[in-house]
Design a protein around this nucleic acid. Sequence first.
DNA 1: ATTTTGACACTCT
DNA 2: CAGAGTGCCAAAA
Length: 102
Amino acid sequence: MGKVLDDDLIFLVLSIVEEIPEGKVATYGQIAGLADRPNNARLVGKILGMSEYYGEYPCHRVVNHNGRLAPNFHTQKEKLESEGIKFKNDEHVDLKKHKWII
DNA sequence: ATTTTGACACTCT
DNA sequence: CAGAGTGCCAAAA
């Protein structure tokens, strides 16, 4: 298998995001690790920013390692709350309770 | 080839 | 808990 990047990486990342169960959240770093690129969390964020172009994915279930929501994704909180995610405050989900463990 | 950018992670204060 | 500083690395400029 050749080097995996852009289009292949996008497909891989999105397929992983698709696996996050309802009521759970994952971090960018976690997704990066599952995609076998543990140091590319930032790339995961960039891909999710464009994910709409590729289809419907539960990208609202991805937050940073502190549980902070994505900037400029104003419907994220309500989507998470609608599936039962609890928040520590306005900007941070309760990762302790809801982090997706494989 | 070099610099900047990014929905990040980690450590230290 | 909030900032600052550092590390990270592919993509785009």
